Computed example of a mutant assay.
Amino acid sequence: MTPSTVQGPGAVALGPAREHLWSAVHQGDEHRATAVVLDLLESSADPETVLLDLIAPVQARVGAEWAANRLTVAQEHTATAIHERVIAVLAHRVEGRSRTPDGPRVTVACVDGEWHALPARLLAEVLRLRGWRVDFLGAQVPTPHLIAHLHGTGPRAVALSSSIPTHLPTAHTAITACRAAGVPVIAGGAAFGPDGRYARALGADGWAPDAREAAAVLGRGLDRPGPSAFHQTVDDLPHLSDQEYTMVAATKHQLVKQTLADLEDRFEPMRAYTERQRRHTAEDLAHIVEYLATSLYVADDELFLRFILWTADILTARGVPARSLDPALDLLAQHLKDFPRARRTLAHAREALGERTPLTKIPGPGKPA
């Protein structure tokens, strides 16, 4: 699920508290962060407001500051860990106030490979406050273990969270398996698109943009899947029959290795890279191929485009010219000359990138540099 940034109907003015909490997590001060949250809880705000209108927006700011290169990875991890522990303290403090032992049961989990568990944790706590019996399975839950849990507990629904779009194929597997087990699925998190388009494409029974809306959707109820829920992936995504996704995903390491070698030959600035810069370049190429494969999986060029433009902004914030992306996209298109959907997706991204930055053209094989 995505942290809520819209204040609920009973929300108090939280501007000062948000600044105090931001200052505390920014400085890695867990005790002060806890004090800010508990003071607001005791003085003027209900627990759900504290979770969704105080903690969630500050966590969103943490991510934005990291993307703008104003927080290091270590600082971002520290702030997130503080928020997780603060939520645990808050949950313990309010335990018993609004719990309903006999309430409906729900499972909340992150898809396999997804380490960003805080949005799902926020949803789990909101559902507990609203009287649900919640099984919160946390980050990176393998689909077979999730299904075994569902068979053993029989929840009314399962809420699946994913923040990273490259986990969409895995999310599709989990959604299909949960529905085949007779349990409806609500999906949430940035991976599923700003309007939930990928949740619908992958067969989820519901989608919500944030924890507050997810709780409302679950409260209204989701229909249990019928016998037709058991089907093959290609039934949802018939375009996969062209095998482009399968081939790109299966050859990812080869594509990265070959593109990296070609970049060194044809992109002169790379010849002066340090070993660390080369390693980062290889990691960036791996992410590009992963997002390209995911875009092919859901047949949406816009998914790849958004990633490339976001990456261009990240590079710019770190003092790296965004035009350095274009040679990699050009070379990938050359390597994928027999894949029309992949080439179209790459061309779309290069065109958008070219409107923002000067391009460095890479000659094709056999052409003089």
Rank of each mutant, 00 (worst) to 15 (best):
F339A: 14
A317D: 12
Q334V: 04
S43M: 11
E275V: 00
Q254E: 08
K367N: 02
D205P: 07
L260E: 05
D326Q: 12
A45T: 03
A286F: 06
V234L: 09
P327N: 06
T80V: 05
H280E: 10
D53L: 07
P144L: 06
R156D: 11
H26L: 13
Y291K: 05
T233Q: 04
G63P: 12
H31A: 09
H253R: 07
P155I: 03
A174Q: 01
G189V: 06
R224E: 15
L331Q: 02
D223A: 14
E302R: 12
R279C: 13
G10M: 14
V320H: 09
L346K: 04
L336M: 10
A60Y: 10
A68C: 08
A67I: 00
R266W: 00
L237H: 01
V134L: 06
A333M: 08
P142M: 05
H92V: 00
H92M: 00
Q258A: 11
Y291D: 09
P327V: 03
P238K: 05
A11N: 09
S228G: 14
W207T: 02
L353D: 05
H287E: 13
P327S: 10
H145S: 09
T281M: 14
E42H: 14
T173C: 11
V320T: 05
R276A: 00
L160E: 03
H239K: 09
T49S: 14
V73D: 06
F192M: 12
P327R: 04
D112S: 10
H172G: 00
L309R: 05
R70P: 07
G226F: 15
E76A: 10
V25D: 01
L260S: 07
A272S: 15
V111H: 12
A13L: 13
A148Y: 10
A293K: 06
A11L: 13
H83Y: 12
D112P: 08
A261G: 13
L118D: 09
F192R: 03
R341E: 08
P327C: 12
I164F: 08
G96Y: 01
V298M: 08
Q232H: 10
G188F: 01
G152E: 15
R85V: 01
E19C: 05
V141I: 15
L150C: 07
G152N: 13
F307T: 04
T78N: 13
P16K: 09
H145N: 10
W132C: 02
L52S: 01
G319P: 14
P9Q: 07
A261D: 13
M247R: 11
A177C: 06
T170G: 10
R278S: 06
R279L: 13
L353V: 02
A171P: 06
Q59V: 06
T246F: 11
A24T: 04
V108F: 07
L52C: 11
F304K: 04
R266P: 00
D205I: 03
P194S: 15
T100D: 13
R121Y: 08
R323V: 00
A286L: 13
A250G: 10
L292K: 06
T49M: 14
V298N: 04
H116C: 11
F304P: 05
L329F: 01
T345W: 10
R197D: 13
